[in-house]
Design a protein around this nucleic acid. Structure first.
Lengths: 327, 327
DNA sequence: CTGTTAGCGCCTTCAT
DNA sequence: ATGAAGGCGCTAACAG
């Protein structure tokens, strides 16, 4: 039924090697080229990527490691990486690690022996992989890109988005607006979360204000719950910011339900600047951490390594404050 | 460096066929079994899935076709499918077709010759594939599951979620609450969107009310824009519903900014009942179309077909109304 | 520029 | 229960 390279060669009156050359854009005489082309089109023949993979040890696959695709940040990252890569003949395989390194290790094993050519790690949480010597060794065989982190492997590119500065600038912005009772909600306790909180603390202390940090691990309700707590503890609060849009959105919701006018009585700022910011009432002002740019950069850089091009080991991106209605 | 089946066989003092049998749980004498096991563990050997794939014509891959992973509905679907399948040794490959059938066709070609064993289509939009005879033929070679649709291929399971009834019930609910100026916002013009709108119309007409439908193709701003329009055209509006949470959320936002009290002056109902409903202020009441259940069902059914089990060609799921604060 | 040939790592008869 | 040998579809020397 489905044709292979022998069938094509036979019907094009040539050898399989010539067909193979044609397929891989090597030199083939124009007239044979024409004959091969005709037969290939006649049967809509596609060479088996498995058989090719067995020889080349590659299935033209790039793995993307995320925590959970349901979170907008990771959905966006994998979308843009896929978009950038799928044109170049690569297919993307997304792995939901739920932040668990054992799960991640299993995925790495799995994609590696599927002929995966490179891995993109999205998020600083994957920094912790450095502690697993065996995993690091496996990663040595392929190019790796990581955002906001650095892995001790042969070919690794780090894309840094200065999260700390993003929050620092946002805090400054609030201070310059005259806000003084500025609260911060920290989501999780990973490296990136800590850096962001540091940015907040630094800006507050420089201005002679006392930092006030609330903690949560619940992405959907945490902002609401902590804001309720804040209201009880300090009714004079005049600004809230966090390291996640979703946290800030539910904080904003709590304020609105309390009768506060967000953007006037209290300013709220988020982080990521996802499209969901537009759904908040009022629309959420947020730190834009350039997810599209960093994702596309990750994709094109891993291609560069694969293509044997020169590449820089580090790329730095600056977050910016995207002002909407909530602050 | 990396061991193959010959290395294992040699060191375990047996032949590759016996190792292969061990790997595939065939009969092997206990003592040889032990020796093989020891060597395999010593080197942490994993058989190459590419080589295996060349023989079996399968890479243990399932493709999931979605429109755009950035939309919560698709992110959730692919997450739950992945979660259900990754335990069984299958890997999932997500394809963002952006609703374009040519793109979809290319992905199908691609995953098929990568040794993909089955495809899950998420959303009624993929019904349109029936018009492409060549695509349908290709799909004949593998099991297929589609939600809210039916493909004319050999082995296809349809999972129907009664969208029309979901909206019908929601409309009834509003009517029973005494609402009369109920508006509907339709997003896109695909089969599912039309069915939902029909549910709305039917409920309205049965109650002797005049349906009033607004249209948009903009998932993030459409709800807002159309609601602005509504307010100008009929200030007495007392309820809005739509076929997408995001549309209803931005509709709600427009109402709040207009000074209306959502859930009191005007009721708003969404569709999907994603976690984002909790971020709206007030929290969005929505039709729950059972995305987790349908996704997990899709995954386990495609496994059933692959395992040669008996299977039903159709599964029906009932949406329910999840009442929160906005209605 | 082209054809022959030897693998890539595994599964699967077919004997034993 | 086990081993030998052929083949899955393709690429990559090698020789012409």
């Amino acid at each position: 039924m489905t044709k292979n390279i022998y069938d094509i060669a036979r019907e094009a009156k040539t050898s399989i090697s010539t067909v193979s050359r044609y397929l891989n854009n090597k030199n083939v005489r124009p007239d044979t080229k024409e004959r091969i082309k005709a037969v290939i089109e006649k049967y809509n023949y596609h060479p088996s990527s498995i058989a090719k993979g067995l020889v080349t040890k590659s299935m033209k696959l790039i793995a993307v490691m995320v925590v959970d695709i349901r979170l907008p940040h990771y959905a966006n990252a994998s979308y843009f990486i896929d978009k950038e890569l799928s044109n170049t003949g690569y297919r993307v395989i997304v792995c939901n690690t739920s932040g668990d390194l054992n799960t991640c290790a299993k995925y790495i094993d799995s994609v590696l022996n599927m002929g995966c050519e490179g891995i993109i790690f999205v998020g600083s949480i994957f920094n912790e992989l450095n502690r697993y010597q065996e995993i690091v060794e496996k990663l040595n065989s392929i190019p790796v890109v990581i955002t906001n982190g650095k892995l001790d492997v042969e070919r690794c590119i780090s894309i840094y988005i200065d999260d700390k500065k993003g929050i620092y600038d946002a805090t400054k912005y609030l201070i310059n607006k005259g806000r003084t009772h500025i609260k911060y909600i920290q989501y999780t306790n990973n490296q990136s979360a800590i850096l962001k909180a540091d940015g907040y603390k630094e800006a507050m202390q420089e201005a002679g204000l006392t930092p006030s940090i609330y903690y949560t691990n619940d992405i959907f309700n945490g902002g609401y719950d902590e804001t309720r707590r804040m209201i009880l503890e300090d009714y004079a609060l005049d600004a809230i910011l966090s390291g996640e849009d979703l946290i800030s959105m539910s904080a904003s919701r709590a304020l609105v339900l309390e009768g506060k006018v967000v953007g006037k009585d209290v300013d709220v700022i988020g982080f990521n600047s996802s499209d969901y910011c537009l759904l908040a009432a009022p629309a959420l002002t947020a730190v834009d951490n350039k997810i599209e740019e960093s994702s596309k950069t990750a994709a094109s850089l891993i291609k560069d390594i694969l293509d044997g091009k020169e590449y820089q080991k580090e790329v730095h991106l600056e977050p910016t404050l995207k002002i909407r209605e909530s602050a």
